[in-house]
């Protein structure tokens, strides 16, 4: 078995350092090299939806203009039954399908051809989960802020027959982009019908409107997002050597292709 027993620890040791010591953060100017633009594939197929793939190239790190998109690719999605579909480019590097929709228990393969180079990877759509209950508790750890902070308590439906993995994204005030996300493996729960947890990395205040999306994902997607998390959320860390998360589309390519489904629920702190 691959090393899936990862990232159980909400307690990031280096995070503690930066919390405890009166440390000081400052945005700085730094000169970075510009690497050769490299192709990135961001592919997804969701339950009951067609596949969506975005192809773009890396830009210089501090660039604030949009990246260059790849618009001349041939992209095909195939399911385990042998049905396939060619995706069509709809602008800005986006390619979408129409007829082939995501189904539970099916594995999908995405293949991409760009400039006579082929990339292919697959992912399995697992049993969807359901947010059975969403509540909150007052957080009492390092109480350095003036306002009360809250943590979520989440109960998810789980299929005990499967090795399940979950990606849970947390949104504030109807924003399109999540504040942060956390990952949960079946190995850290009794394999019951219901699993519950409280993510410590996400806290909010009384005025926030909180939305939670719980994705049911396969093992490969879990590994990829775990690696991605180390790279994009370096709070206080940065002492371990950063790297490019390993793609399932082949070596020498960035990005990932995943099949998933999700459930969504929102909550707000009630007046006492």
């Amino acid at each position: 078995m691959k090393a899936t027993k990862k990232y159980i620890f909400g307690l990031n040791y280096l995070l503690i350092i930066s919390l405890v010591l009166a440390s000081c953060e400052e945005v700085i100017d730094i000169t970075l090299n510009d690497a050769e633009p490299k192709l990135t594939i961001d592919g997804v197929i969701s339950l009951n939806s067609p596949a969506t793939v975005k192809l773009s190239y890396t830009t210089s790190y501090f660039a604030d203009e949009p990246p260059i998109y790849e618009t001349n690719a041939t992209i095909k999605i195939t399911n385990t039954r042998g049905t396939s579909e060619i995706l069509s480019h709809v602008g800005n590097g986006y390619y979408i399908g129409q007829s082939l929709l995501g189904e539970v228990g099916i594995e999908y393969e995405l293949s991409v051809e760009v400039d006579d180079k082929f990339y292919a990877g697959s992912s399995r759509l697992m049993t969807p989960t359901q947010i059975v209950d969403l509540s909150y508790t007052k957080f009492d750890g390092f109480g350095s802020s003036d306002e009360d902070e809250y943590n979520l308590e989440i109960v998810l439906k789980n299929n005990p027959q499967e090795d399940n993995y979950y990606l849970v994204k947390y949104y504030l005030n109807s924003s399109d982009k999540e504040e942060t996300y956390s990952l949960w493996s079946h190995e850290f729960f009794p394999n019951d019908e219901l699993i519950e947890f409280s993510p410590l990395r996400f806290s909010f205040t009384k005025d926030d409107f909180v939305t939670v999306k719980a994705y049911s994902i396969d093992e490969g997607t879990y590994d990829y997002y775990s690696q991605l998390d180390e790279i994009i959320d370096q709070r206080g860390g940065g002492s371990s050597t950063p790297f490019n998360p390993a793609s399932n589309l082949g070596k020498g390519i960035l990005g990932y292709f995943r099949a998933w489904s999700f459930d969504e629920k929102s909550i707000q702190v009630e007046d006492e």
Binding site: L32, V44, T59, S60
Partner: peptide
């Protein structure tokens, strides 16, 4: 190790 570029994902 610092980045020499960036890309968009999800």
């Amino acid at each position: 190790t610092f980045p020499s570029g960036k890309y968009e994902f999800d």
